[in-house]
């Protein structure tokens, strides 16, 4: 479903010069799977997900999503994905209903299907009370619900969640996680980035641990645990990242 090969992204920065955010990452994610991207801040998770959602173009390498290449058919890919992130805010001066309807129309849905789908989603996420509430009047939880409804209005086969639970209270976060589980159960391919290890253990079938734009470990949580002989995922994450940091420092010192 998602095949990422040698994906690389570099930027020019006025202060530090050329900066490589992604350094040739590769992974595969299948339908019905939740694929977790883990890493500290600045590891390159958001850049990778922005490339998968075609918001950014890769410097080199490729990603095939549901048969379409991010370099060649970004427009077609946008119909195949739903993107939710901490940054994907909702419009302050639009009601929940207007916002979901707007994106449904942008996805090319006809009015009848859109109406049925919206009724279903508003019922499913218990959002009927906030149909006519403006974005600026919504709580963070409400906003994230609307954001998810917006992302899945066109029933895409691929969903991308970029730290979607960050800043949410436990009740709303749980609801988001339940939604992700349900979506995977429906056969969707879900990419889920987070640095909350309990969420990752609960949701993800496979994970990739990233740091400095590279994948340091990749596979099922069990396989990685066995490889590093560590069952606690938080400890496992810490060991892999700190080992990489030390290697980096050594290579800098040795010139």
């Amino acid at each position: 479903m998602i095949h990422v090969r040698k994906l690389r992204k570099s930027y020019q920065d006025l202060q530090s010069g050329a900066f490589t955010a992604l350094d040739g990452i590769s992974f595969d994610a299948m339908p019905g799977q939740v694929y977790g991207l883990l890493g500290p801040n600045g590891a390159g998770k958001t850049t990778a997900l922005r490339i998968l959602s075609t918001v950014l173009r890769p410097t080199s390498g490729t990603a095939i999503i549901n048969g379409f290449d991010v370099n060649e058919s970004p427009e077609k890919i946008r119909h195949q994905i739903g993107f939710v992130s901490t940054n994907t805010a909702i419009y302050d001066r639009m009601t929940a209903w207007e916002l979901v309807q707007y994106f449904g129309r942008l996805y090319g849905m006809d009015d009848d299907n859109l109406q049925i789908r919206m009724e279903h989603l508003f019922e499913r996420f218990q959002m009927n009370d906030i149909r006519n509430v403006l974005g600026s009047k919504m709580s963070t939880g409400m906003k994230q619900k609307v954001s998810i409804a917006r992302a899945i209005i066109h029933d895409p086969p691929v969903l991308i969640f970029d730290e979607a639970t960050s800043g949410l209270d436990i009740l709303v976060a749980r609801e988001v996680l339940r939604t992700v589980e349900q979506l995977a159960d429906q056969g969707k391919c879900v990419i889920f980035s987070s640095h909350i290890m309990t969420e990752v253990r609960r949701l993800c079938h496979r994970i990739a641990i990233m740091s400095h734009g590279r994948i340091l470990a990749e596979g099922s949580i069990e396989d990685i645990s066995q490889e590093f002989r560590e069952n606690d995922i938080e400890e496992l994450f810490y060991q892999i990242i700190s080992k990489h940091e030390q290697e980096q420092q050594r290579s800098v010192l040795s010139g």
Binding site: T54, V55, R78, T88
Partner: peptide, 14 residues
């Protein structure tokens, strides 16, 4: 600033 731009860019609109 409000973060809505990325939402729009990930939609099918060119």
């Amino acid at each position: 600033e409000r973060g809505t731009f990325e939402t729009l860019l990930s939609s099918p609109a060119q």
